[in-house]
């Protein structure tokens, strides 16, 4: 894959946390268009905090976040989302009282992107679930719906926090195929503990430990050899 020289997302010396509690220390990373980045690390390593900071839910103590060469530190989460950086949270919470169609309509209205057919090419199962209440979907279906909602508006970068958590192995395999397809239209940054999946989709892997990035690799052989496993 040919990478552009300017990163889509550029993070420099980022310190962030909750209240006075520092969780992230000196995070520096680059994400280029078309890449699939995986973030791995134990629970409490700061992966979710990093995503929450990038998505605008946490204001960093210091550091720089440049998305499409614009500083987004201090922007509201909705402004960051509208600028093309979408965040799929790990809780798999959809709007339970609304139908799948209404969930998609909400996502479309915010971004003015009503091209559902494009989304259905990646996630065809959703098409038959349109009238179902989102609260009645299975874990895998909810995840599909969340991904579909994130893809509306053609975001440049989608952050996904543990998309396979709690899913059955065959669903993880399905999701892996979905990621392989949607990477054709967007850049993905995924927090993932499922290492077989990481080896299948990642172009670059960042390993996190105790709030720091302790290793990174974009060498396919190293990724296949799971060299980052020691940080888990």
């Amino acid at each position: 894959m040919e990478e552009s020289k300017t990163p889509l997302l550029r993070v420099r010396n980022l310190y962030s946390g909750y209240g006075n509690l520092k969780v992230l220390f000196d995070i520096t990373m680059d994400v280029y268009s078309g890449e699939v980045i995986c973030l791995v690390g134990r629970n409490g390593a700061g992966k979710t905090t990093l995503f929450r900071t990038l998505a605008g839910f946490l204001k960093p103590f210091s550091g720089e976040i440049l998305f499409k060469q614009k500083n987004v530190v201090g922007n509201f989460p909705f402004e960051i989302a509208l600028s093309g950086l979408k965040y799929v949270h790990q809780d798999k919470q959809v709007f339970s009282d609304l139908t799948v169609r209404e969930n998609l309509e909400l996502a479309s209205y915010a971004t003015k992107d009503y091209d559902w057919d494009r989304v259905f090419t990646y996630l065809p199962k959703l098409k038959v679930l349109l009238q179902r209440k989102a609260g009645l979907l299975s874990g895998g279906e909810k995840q599909m719906l969340l991904i579909a909602m994130a893809l509306l508006g053609r975001p440049s970068l989608v952050l996904m926090d543990e998309p396979t958590e709690g899913l059955a192995p065959h669903l993880i395999q399905d999701l892996t195929q979905v990621f392989k397809e949607i990477r054709k239209e967007t850049t993905l940054c995924i927090v993932e503990q499922n290492l077989p999946m990481v080896t299948q989709i990642a172009d670059k892997v960042y390993s996190m430990k105790e709030g720091k990035i302790v290793a990174e690799t974009s060498n396919p052989e190293e990724i296949r050899a799971l060299v980052f496993e020691k940080y888990l």
């Binding site: 839910f57 509201f76 989460p77 949270h89 709007f95 909400l106 971004t111």
Partner: peptide
Amino acid sequence: VLGAAFKATQGNERRMQFLGYDT
């Protein structure tokens, strides 16, 4: 969409923000 947005904001305000809504 307004009615759905009201209910969705009550149900999960953060998700609405992820979608790009100024809740």
